[in-house]
Structures are given as structure tokens and as C-alpha cells.
Simulated scan of single mutants.
Amino acid sequence: MEDQKKYWKENLKYLGILLTIWFLVSFVFGILLVEELNTIRLGGFKLGFWFAQQGSIYVFVLLIFVYIRLMNKLDKKYNLDT
């Protein structure tokens, strides 16, 4: 029972961190800071535009793979892998 609580506590910690990163990239960089980021260019495009149109999607997909890796490690740590 104690292992289940530790498992879920770590899982929620990972989710909180990854969702915070996703929020920062998609909402803060893509909406709130778009004007400031547009002063920087990335590959010929304004950085704020890039985050709003493509960057947040790339980061979201990357976060999915990071979450999969973290959960596989967590499952092995608590002997829940099958």
C-alpha cells in the first residue's frame, strides 16, 4: 500500500512538471510573450510566431515521449512492468 502511494506521488510530480512546461511553451510563450519573442528570429521566422504555430506542438510531442520514458522507469522501480 505504501509503494502505491509513493508511485502515485512520483507520477503526479512528473505530470505537474511536464504540464508546467507545456503551459509555459503553449500559453506563456505562444500568447503572453509573443510580442517580446517576435523580436528574435528563428530560421527566418519570428520566434513568437514559431512558438504559437509549431514550437508548442513539437514540445508537446516531445513531452509525450519524455512521459513514456519516465513512466517506464517508474514502473520498473516499483516492479509494475510486465
Rank of each mutant, 00 (worst) to 15 (best):
F23T: 02
L70C: 05
E2V: 02
L63P: 08
D81Y: 13
N38E: 01
L24Q: 02
Y67T: 00
E10V: 03
K6D: 04
S26R: 13
E2N: 09
L15Q: 08
K73S: 09
W50Q: 07
Y14V: 03
S26D: 12
I68T: 07
L18S: 04
T39W: 07
L47Y: 08
F49Q: 08
L33F: 15
Y14F: 14
G44M: 05
E36N: 13
K9V: 00
I40S: 08
V34I: 15
G48L: 05
G30D: 05
I31H: 14
G30R: 05
W22R: 09
L19D: 00
Q54A: 14
M71I: 04
K76V: 07
I31E: 14
L62G: 14
L80M: 12
R41S: 14
I68Q: 08
F45I: 09
F65D: 02
Q4C: 04
G44S: 06
E35K: 15
L62T: 12
N38S: 11
D81I: 13
W50S: 06
K6T: 00
F45A: 11
I57G: 03
N11P: 01
L24K: 02
Q54Y: 13
I57P: 06
V28G: 02
L33D: 06
F23G: 04
L24F: 13
L42M: 13
L62A: 15
Q53I: 08
Q54P: 06
L18G: 03
I57D: 04
L74N: 12
L42Q: 08
I17S: 02
F49H: 11
G55P: 12
I31S: 12
F27Q: 13
F45V: 11
L80P: 04
Y67F: 15
I17A: 02
F27L: 08
L62S: 13
E2P: 02
S56G: 10
I64W: 13
G48C: 07
S26Q: 08
L70F: 09
G16E: 01
K73Q: 12
W8H: 12
K6P: 00
N79A: 07
F45T: 07
F23S: 08
G30N: 04
D81Q: 15
A52V: 00
F49C: 00
L24M: 11
L18T: 05
V66M: 05
Q53G: 09
V34R: 15
S26W: 05
I21D: 02
D81T: 08
F45H: 10
A52L: 12
D75Q: 13
L12V: 05
L19Y: 03
L80Y: 04
K9C: 05
L15M: 10
L37C: 06
Q54C: 10
G16P: 01
Q4D: 08
M71D: 06
L70E: 01
G43S: 06
W8F: 14
V34K: 15
L70A: 00
L19K: 06
S56T: 10
F51A: 05
F60S: 15
G48V: 01
R41W: 01
I21G: 00
T20K: 01
F29S: 03
L70I: 00
W8R: 14
V25F: 02
V61H: 05
S26M: 03
K9Y: 01
K5T: 01
T39V: 11
